[in-house]
Each structure stands twice: as structure tokens, then as C-alpha cells.
């Protein structure tokens, strides 16, 4: 028979081990991608797969020769950041009015917004392509910025709405009685209180924009192409070159991974904002 103390310890060891196992399972594909990017093409195709090999930078050098990585990265950065900012600019007032001036239609509006996310993007590819074409926006950053802003808007509004709902309305009413205008109330009271939640929402939006591939592949070719388009360009035309594909994927993921790593504290705080209030 185990004592209470022993069974608690056993429980914590089991929970700890299984957490690490699940984390390792989730992280493995990323690790494998990074490892493969340092292999030669022959090592990359070897069966059984090789864990120990002679690392090489040849894939990275080749990519650098063949394509202008920084131009793609700049497009990714610019499009993601501007789309995220625009999205926040629209979502904050929307969430403010829905959270603090709730009407009979608020819940329905929120559900309707979310339902738009259920539509497969390919279903609206033709009309959006034709609109972009007639406006001369094919292969332009503006088209991607507008589309990314709109496709992320429902999720961003929902997230901010949830954070705002956790803030007691009394605080905003106190500000109103203290003489704050609506803009001052939002800018000097609401946003500073919700900054954790807002930061994690921005981060999520940034990640979603950065990783978006469907619209970037269909609406851009070179001038406005972001990193996802660069990765795709290494996939099929010349057969599958796993090592090069892994190298370019690593390059595409690296910035957002590093950014996520740096801001993980903020992210966790934001995601658990309601729970720990």
C-alpha cells in the first residue's frame, strides 16, 4: 500500500513524464525539420532515418544563392504586422461596444462573425481573385493585408471581447464619472488593464498571418510573395528535395518561433488572463 505522500509523488512523476512525452511528440516534426535542413539530400532520404550525420550548411547557401530570402521575409513581416495592426484597430472598438454596451443582438453578431470562419477559403477564391484582378491588386501587399485583416477579424474580436468581458464595467463607469471621454476611457483605462490579453491576441494574429499560405500562394507571385510562397516554391517543380525544403521551412519558421519564444511569458499571461484574475 502506498502512503498518501508516496501516491502524490507518483502522481506528480506520472503527470510530469506524460507532459514531457506529449511535448516531445508535438515538437518532434519541428526538430526533424531542423535536423534535415543540415543534412545532405542523400542523408535526408536515407532509410532507416539518420539521427547522427555530418551537418552541412550547403542547403542554406544554395537557398541564399537561388532566392532573395530577405525580400520574402520583409513581405511576411510587413504584411503580418500591418494586417495585425489594422485588425486590432477595428476589433478593439467592436469588442468594446459588444462587451460593455451589450444589446439583444450581440451574441448573435458574435456567432455570425465566427461562422464566417467555417466557410472554406477556396469557396470564395474565384470572386476574390477576380476582384483583385479588376482592382489591379494581384501580387500586391495591399490585397494580402486586406484579406488577412478580414479573415482574422472574427477570432481577434472574439478574443478581445472575452478579455474585455473580464474587466468590471464599474471601472469604466468610474472613469466616465471622472470626466473621461470615450477615447480616454479606452486609451487610458481599458487598454492598459487589458494589455496582457491584447498582446497575446496580437501575437496570435501575427502568427496566423505569418503562416497563412492559401491566399499568398493564389494571389501573389513575386513582388508581394511572403515566406510561405518561398517554401512552396521549393516543393514540387523539381521533385522533392527534402533537405532544401527543410532548410527553407526552417528559415520561414525561425523568426516567428524566436518571436514566440521571447514573448511566451506575455502569451501565457494573456491566454490565462480570465482564469487568474
Amino acid at each position: 500500500m502506498l502512503t498518501l505522500k508516496q501516491s502524490r509523488r507518483l502522481q506528480s512523476v506520472l503527470v510530469g513524464t506524460s507532459s514531457w512525452a506529449i511535448a516531445a511528440l508535438i515538437f518532434f516534426p519541428i526538430l526533424w525539420m531542423i535536423l534535415t535542413s543540415f543534412k545532405t539530400e542523400i542523408d535526408a532520404f536515407a532509410t532507416p532515418p539518420q539521427f547522427f550525420f555530418m551537418p552541412t550548411l550547403e542547403n542554406y547557401l544554395l537557398i541564399n544563392e537561388r532566392s532573395d530570402y530577405f525580400s520574402f521575409a520583409w513581405n511576411s513581416l510587413l504584411i503580418s504586422s500591418v494586417a495585425t495592426l489594422l485588425c486590432m484597430l477595428i476589433a478593439v472598438p467592436a469588442a468594446y461596444s459588444m462587451a460593455f454596451f451589450e444589446s439583444r443582438h450581440t451574441k448573435r453578431t458574435l456567432l455570425w462573425m465566427l461562422s464566417t470562419k467555417m466557410l472554406p477559403p477556396v469557396g470564395v477564391l474565384m470572386p476574390i481573385y477576380l476582384i483583385c484582378q479588376s482592382l489591379g491588386l494581384l501580387d500586391s501587399r495591399i490585397a494580402l493585408i486586406v484579406i488577412y485583416t478580414l479573415i482574422n477579424l472574427p477570432i481577434v474580436v472574439w478574443m478581445i471581447y472575452t478579455y474585455f468581458k473580464d474587466i468590471p464595467v464599474d471601472i469604466l463607469e468610474a472613469a466616465r464619472l471622472d470626466g473621461a471621454t470615450t477615447l480616454q476611457e479606452i486609451g487610458r483605462v481599458l487598454l492598459p488593464i487589458a494589455r496582457g490579453g491584447l498582446a497575446s491576441t496580437m501575437l496570435l494574429s501575427l502568427i496566423l498571418c505569418w503562416n497563412e499560405a492559401f491566399w499568398s500562394l493564389n494571389l501573389t507571385s513575386s513582388a508581394a510573395a511572403p515566406l510561405t510562397a518561398l517554401v512552396a516554391s521549393y516543393s514540387s517543380p523539381e521533385g522533392l528535395f527534402w533537405a532544401k525544403l527543410s532548410a527553407v521551412s526552417t528559415l520561414a519558421c525561425a523568426p516567428i518561433l524566436i518571436f514566440g519564444w521571447i514573448s511566451q511569458k506575455q502569451l501565457v499571461r494573456g491566454l490565462s488572463f480570465g482564469a487568474v484574475k
Binding site: 471601472i171 463607469e173 468610474a174 464619472l177 473621461a180
Partner: peptide, 16 residues
């Protein structure tokens, strides 16, 4: 509310 020259103390304190 701001123009009425009234001040209110809330049950929840409502401090910033």
C-alpha cells in the same frame, strides 16, 4: 456623467 459634477463610490471600489 462627467458634466454633472457628481462623484460616485462603487460597491466594488472600481479603482484603476
Amino acid at each position: 456623467p462627467a458634466k454633472r459634477d457628481l462623484a460616485m463610490v462603487f460597491q466594488t471600489y472600481a479603482l484603476y
